[in-house]
Design a protein around this nucleic acid. Structure first.
Length: 568
DNA sequence: GCCGTTTTCGGCCCGACTGTTTTCAGTCG
């Protein structure tokens, strides 16, 4: 008998206990321990419950004796006595208010003590001016009101390419100020996470105040959230927040280093620096003994002073990259330029919006050597032979480029494939994927995928989890069993580059790589414009620590044939 | 509450901005 909690639920619980501790003015380092543990659990590669079941909780950094015992108690009994005791006199509704930007535990407590029931009640009372005497000044109340508006408008997170596009516009605007010498993305956008919350931007300039003033005039701005001497936050009309940090050019490397890494990466690096006698911040690296300040124009130098390699931004999550950088053993990650072809594309023959020839020409223009034309295998709609003829024809007419015949075949809910083997055998590359019955139980789903992989005609498992970012969760399956099977059968796992998929997700890519699995990075293009989305799949692969050799479509056509045997 | 090549106690990353604070608390990243 045990109770189920997702990683997110456990993380939220620990964050809530941290809030309770903050209200009670507990030791700040205890508070931090809860938040650190929560963050670690939220970003775990595997389900915490699975790790608990195999008795390996002690493999998780940041979980000591006490937190491990609490988590054990949680999974066994469904609750934690200590958590209940410590939150006994804390009103539950407090936690509703923590989602409002600018409202932390202390403010939330004041609101809860005033007898406000929930978010909507709060909104109503502020509008009606009924919150005087709550121990909150007018300015604070106005700030909360604005926070509520912002929270309501804020699309939770945005897709990576959307964020990248907005950031590009902001950076273009910044460069219109003559004093701006350099400008880049920072934070989760620079680390290329699949989805991004806030957009962080850096600028190098000797006139930070002027640049902040210029930033306040960014096109599309709704209002200025805050503005200081060299940092500022604005909210755009679409509800997205943009942070700007400015440093003079000689400190630009320090700035990039400080605001690129994830929280845990930064803590690791700065702790390490302290042991070596340095205090690291965006204002320079200070030698503690002499007080000497090292200023760096480039961030590589910050790491070099600490006798480390400079980890690529995508790796700065404290997932082993600090150790690798210290040992000078960072992987040489795959790059967009390494990609030679695209193994998953669609045309007018299924749900694509361009002909095979148009797709081939555009792919060639982008420098690719080949594509797999993998239309859906609609069994009653597709004239397979006629389509193969057309592929042949395009191969004759588009010179120096190869269209490989393929199909994307549904794995039916009953574990059969959408079309019979004789159809599969007519094609050079077969991708399989789940498009229906996403909510099957884990065991059944795992068996369903493995059955499909065991078909000797099948080459690639496409968008394996079926997730749609910001829309729906992926399927539940025993991924480690599947990865082992993919490896044993010599099949390929797809990293789907389409922006709302990015599937496999980066954490599972890393896990699959441990099993020695090889990957393809494919755009799943349905339009010629989609063919250039490859870079987002490459970002996922890089976040999963993939090098060139892990990716089959870095191979030129001649060598690809050694892996995809039916390719002529 | 966690952690260890200064180890089982005594430390724990660093800084910006806002409010009303004349030295600091709260929030955020």
């Amino acid at each position: 008998m045990s109770y189920n909690f997702t990683n997110k639920e456990v993380a939220d619980l620990l964050h809530n206990i941290s809030a309770v501790y903050q209200i009670k003015d507990f030791n700040q380092f205890q508070i931090r321990a809860y938040d650190t543990a929560a963050d670690t659990i939220e970003h775990l590669n595997s389900e915490l419950k699975d790790i608990w079941e195999t008795g390996e909780l002690d493999s998780i950094p940041g979980l000591g004796e006490k937190l491990r015992a609490y988590i054990d108690e949680l999974f066994r009994t469904g609750k934690v006595k200590h958590f209940e005791e410590v939150s006994e006199k804390v009103p539950d509704n407090l936690f509703h208010f923590l989602v409002i930007p600018g409202v932390g535990p202390k403010t939330a407590m004041k609101l809860a003590e005033t007898g406000i029931k929930d978010f909507h009640d709060l909104e109503k009372r502020i509008k009606e001016g009924k919150l005087e005497g709550a121990g909150l000044s007018e300015k604070i109340l106005a700030n909360i009101a604005r926070g509520i508006e912002e929270y309501k408008r804020r699309s939770d997170r945005i897709l990576l390419p959307v964020a990248a596009e907005i950031a590009k516009d902001v950076i273009d605007h910044l460069f219109k100020h003559p004093s701006v010498k350099r400008a880049d993305t920072l934070g989760s956008l620079r680390r290329r996470l699949s989805t991004v919350g806030d957009i962080d931007i850096s600028a190098a300039s000797d006139k930070p105040f002027e640049v902040i003033e210029h930033f306040k005039k960014t096109p599309g701005i709704s209002h200025v959230v805050e503005a200081g001497d060299r940092t500022s936050t604005i909210a755009l009309r679409n509800g997205i927040r943009v942070d700007l940090m400015v440093q003079p050019p000689e400190l630009y490397g320090n700035l990039l280093q400080h605001f690129t890494g994830g929280k845990n990466h930064n803590i690791r690096v700065r702790s390490l620096a302290l042991k070596k006698g340095y205090s690291v911040s965006d204002n320079g690296t200070k030698e503690l003994k002499s007080g000497k300040l090292h200023k760096f124009t480039d961030e590589e130098a910050v790491y070099k002073l600490l006798e480390m390699e400079c980890p690529p931004p995508e790796l700065r999550e404290d997932q082993g990259e600090v150790e690798a950088a210290l040992a000078h053993k960072l992987p040489n990650l795959v790059e967009l330029e390494d990609i030679k072809g695209d193994l998953h594309t669609h045309s007018l023959w299924s749900d694509g919006r361009a002909s095979i020839e148009e797709m081939a020409k555009e792919a060639k223009r982008l420098g690719r050597e080949y594509i797999v034309m993998s239309d859906h295998s609609y069994p009653n709609l597709l004239d397979f032979k006629k389509r193969l003829k057309e592929i042949e024809h395009v191969n004759d007419s588009v010179e120096g480029f190869r269209v490989i015949s393929g199909l994307e075949v549904n794995i039916n809910a009953d574990m059969t494939l959408q079309v019979p083997d004789e159809i599969l055998q007519m094609h050079e590359v077969i991708l399989v994927s789940i498009h229906t019955a996403f909510r099957q139980p884990k065991e059944e789903m795992t068996k369903r995928i493995i059955r499909a992989l065991e078909n000797p005609n099948v080459d690639i498992l496409s968008h394996p989890t079926g997730r749609m970012l910001l829309e729906r969760e992926g399927i539940e399956a025993d991924w480690e069993v599947i990865f082992q099977k993919v490896k044993d059968l010599g099949k390929t796992l797809e990293i789907n580059a389409f922006p709302n998929r990015l599937d496999l997700p980066d954490n599972l890519v890393r896990k699959a790589k441990e099993y020695g699995v090889r990957f393809s990075i494919d755009t799943d293009s349905h339009h010629i414009n989609h063919l250039s989305l490859m870079e987002y799949g490459v970002s996922v692969a890089r976040r999963g620590w993939c090098v060139k050799d892990d990716i089959v479509n870095t191979l030129p056509l001649a060598e690809l044939k050694s892996i995809l045997k039916d390719v002529k």
